[in-house]
């Protein structure tokens, strides 16, 4: 049996994990710690969902948690790739070095930006990922034995 009192325990733990993750996401400046905090918020939600699923006697909570797990894995892959690209450009994991990405007219999130580590400007044009258009054969060297015969 899974009475409401037991569900309330799970809800308390889930809410606490969620709030702690939110504090970490807002307060820390390391990109990786910010992402760990976001994952912790997801963990809190997962605890809540599993508790609710057990309380209502169906699988939906666990199924949704599995979906959350999948999305978290994809998110971690993308986020770590982005973190690596950002680290290559500024040689630092400090999030306040990307202050210039904020909306115009907003104040700085760090009061004195000089306190942040000095950004190292990487020269060169912006490089974005380039994917081959679908349906077009990508250029690749033809081996001699692959050439059509005359």
């Amino acid at each position: 049996m899974f009475p409401f009192d037991l569900l309330a325990n799970y809800l308390i733990v889930g809410a606490a994990l969620m709030a702690i993750g939110m504090v970490g996401f807002l307060a820390r400046r390391n990109l990786i710690v910010m992402f760990l905090s976001a994952e912790m918020m997801l963990q809190g939600v997962a605890v809540t969902l599993v508790g609710f699923g057990r309380f209502h006697g169906n699988w939906t909570g666990q199924v949704f948690t599995i979906i959350i797990l999948t999305v978290a894995a994809s998110e971690a892959a993308i986020a770590l790739a982005l973190v690596l690209v950002l680290f290559k450009r500024r040689s630092s994991l400090d999030v306040s070095l990307w202050n210039d990405l904020r909306e115009p007219g907003l104040p700085l999130s760090v009061e004195n930006p000089d306190e942040a580590e000095a950004p190292e400007i990487v020269p060169g044009p912006e490089s974005y990922p380039h994917l081959t258009v679908a349906g077009i054969e990508p250029p690749h060297p033809r081996q001699p034995w692959e050439r059509p015969r005359d």
């Binding site: 807002l26 307060a27 820390r28 400046r29 390391n30 710690v33 630092s92 994991l93 400090d94 999030v95 306040s96 999130s109 760090v110 306190e115 942040a116 580590e117």
Partner: peptide
Amino acid sequence: ALYDRMARA
């Protein structure tokens, strides 16, 4: 790093 020892607000 320095930014690990500084919190943002």
